[in-house]
Amino acid sequence: MQFLSHTSSARLPTQFGEFDIHVFTDSRNGVEHVALAYGDVQGANDPLVRVHSECLTGDVFGSTRCDCGEQLHHAQRLIQETGQGLILYLKNHEGRGIGLANKMRAYALQDHGMDTVEANIALGLPVDARTYESAADMLRYFAINSIRLLSNNQEKRTALQTLGITIHQQVPLLTTPTTENLKYLKTKSVKLGHLIPDL
């Protein structure tokens, strides 16, 4: 059953070119998710798609503790260069689904030596609580069944495939490590199986 409905759209000029922004509302909880579309994506075959989890600290405030904001902008740039694609921005995914307040609690534990996985476990929280039904629903709205997924996350690929989305290709989104996020990236690579080489 599909729970998302398309509720509004508009033109969105950005530093990476002109996108169309589409808002979808989840009938179960009122949460609004966003699709940024570049070019003609309706019924597109294997477009580039970034399924991006909300990250206030990285996306909005430019935090260097993670690579989220850099990945988001890199995806916009690649999609613009390719001429076609989508960014699906998922709300309620903050901190891999544990929420903003818990993410800050996890940050505090990381400042005392824990990695991102250990911190979530110490708080009694899932390592990753995200689900991707909303992303699959948005892709179905655009009549897209097969994509080139912009992601380092193998579990994201598997989750989308389970929801009926064909992943024609997984395209890694590699960023430049910083002193603040090197341990975080290594943890994602070693403990979460992300495709991040040469760390």
Rank of each mutant, 00 (worst) to 15 (best):
Q2G: 11
Q2N: 14
P13K: 14
P13D: 02
T14Q: 03
Q15R: 12
F16P: 00
F16E: 01
F16L: 02
F19E: 01
D20E: 14
V23D: 00
V23P: 00
T25M: 15
D26G: 08
S27P: 00
S27M: 08
N29G: 12
N29F: 15
H33A: 08
H33G: 09
Y38M: 11
V41R: 01
Q42L: 08
V51E: 00
E54L: 11
L56N: 05
L56S: 03
F61Y: 14
S63W: 06
D67P: 04
C68Y: 11
L72C: 06
Q76V: 01
R77A: 08
I79E: 00
Q80T: 12
T82V: 10
Q84T: 13
L88D: 03
K91Y: 01
G95P: 05
N102M: 12
M104I: 14
A106V: 03
G113I: 11
N120C: 09
D128C: 10
Y132V: 01
Y141V: 07
S146Y: 03
I147W: 02
I147E: 01
R148S: 07
E155A: 09
R157K: 15
Q161I: 02
I165K: 13
I165N: 03
H168V: 00
Q169H: 13
V171C: 12
T178Y: 07
T179N: 14
T179R: 13
T179Y: 04
E180A: 14
Y184I: 09
L185G: 00
T187G: 07
T187D: 03
S189H: 14
V190R: 15
V190Y: 09
L195V: 10
L195N: 07
P197D: 07
P197A: 06
